[in-house]
């Protein structure tokens, strides 16, 4: 219990630190939000008036404390450029990003783990060599490039799938429409984490399969499938879950590029736009959202490991 509380406490500190760093970093970047709003022809007086309207004329410490105070009340502030509540602006975007991340994660799990297991099962066989070579190549491919190749081949040459956006623009449809738009970006986003998960699953499994108890199980005449999927998987799962947790973090960061290539209206694209416009409240909240998601996912992964592996629970208690 104490360990859990300590963990939660450190999470709050991490988030506070993230907010402060982002706030300060954005102060260091040259460029004036008021200038971003008013453009090239603005006069000094009008710039000053807009700065005052946006609250940018207050001292930095006051601005940061105002922001923190708002945060405690669940108020993320107002966007400087689009004049909208930040949460109102970002929550739908976060939702879209989670849809994409979720789909990509599903691809990673459904393809990556079995691939690793089968490769381990046939260690140094042809399947192992080919699949691990492909995984290595996949882990090295720039996401941006891979996305464009998929667009070119599946979207344009073969004309099988839509290449951008989340829904059809003329006739926004329901689930089917979303699904069709999801395929290319989800596979693109999944590529690197999938490769990592497959390779790590393989090495974990290679270890597990060399354990004494596996030999014992084999000797006692259990079927290979039962050994692999029932006994092997159960023991290999905790490290795999840990890796998957980290890869989700990677996914959340990596989808930014995917969102740009596929015009996916997610958090990443919004963050990119807001950074270029010096829209401080939006950037701050966006980074905070990502940080919270990252911390939560890893918390969940740790909890899952605790459930899966009784040994780790004992370790925490001790």
């Amino acid at each position: 219990m104490i360990a859990v509380l300590r963990r939660l406490g450190s999470t709050v500190l991490v988030l506070l630190g993230v907010s402060l760093i982002v706030f300060l970093l954005l102060q260091l970047v040259p460029g004036d939000p008021a200038r971003a709003v008013l453009g090239a022809g603005a006069t000094q007086e009008s710039l000053a008036a807009v700065r005052a309207q946006l609250g940018l004329d207050k001292p930095l410490a006051v601005q940061f404390l105002d922001y923190l105070g708002g945060l405690l009340r669940g108020d993320f502030g107002r966007s400087l450029t689009v004049n909208q509540d930040v949460s109102q602006l970002l929550l739908p975007r976060l939702e879209n990003t989670l849809v994409l991340t979720g789909a990509a994660l599903l691809v990673c799990l459904v393809v990556g783990i079995p691939l690793g297991i089968l490769a381990a099962r046939h260690q140094y066989g042809l399947f192992d060599r080919i699949s691990m070579f492909v995984a290595l190549a996949g882990a090295c491919v720039p996401v941006y490039w891979f996305g464009l190749v998929l667009v070119g081949v599946l979207g344009l040459s073969l004309d099988l799938l839509p290449t951008s956006g989340m829904y059809n623009s003329r006739n926004p449809g329901g689930f089917e429409d979303l699904l069709a738009h999801l395929v290319l970006p989800a596979f693109t986003a999944a590529l690197v984490p999938l490769a990592v998960i497959a390779r790590m699953s393989r090495s974990v499994f290679v270890d597990v399969l060399q354990q004494d108890y596996i030999r014992t199980l084999r000797a006692s005449g259990l079927s290979e499938a039962s050994i692999l999927w029932r006994h092997g998987l159960r023991n290999a799962l905790p490290p795999i879950v840990n890796i998957v947790g980290l890869q989700v973090g990677y996914l959340l960061g990596g989808v930014i590029f995917v969102e740009v290539v596929f015009g996916w209206p997610g958090l990443g694209q919004q963050l990119y736009t807001s950074i270029t416009q010096r829209d401080l409240p939006v950037v701050q909240a966006g980074v905070l959202f990502v940080a919270v998601a990252f911390v939560l996912v890893n918390l969940l992964a740790d909890a899952a490991v605790g459930v899966l592996d009784p040994r780790s629970r004992r370790a925490v208690r001790a």
Partner: peptide
């Protein structure tokens, strides 16, 4: 925002 994505969307009829 991405110029090549824009061109791809035009080519594909999106």
């Amino acid at each position: 925002p991405d110029a090549s994505a824009r061109v791809a969307a035009l080519r594909s009829g999106d």
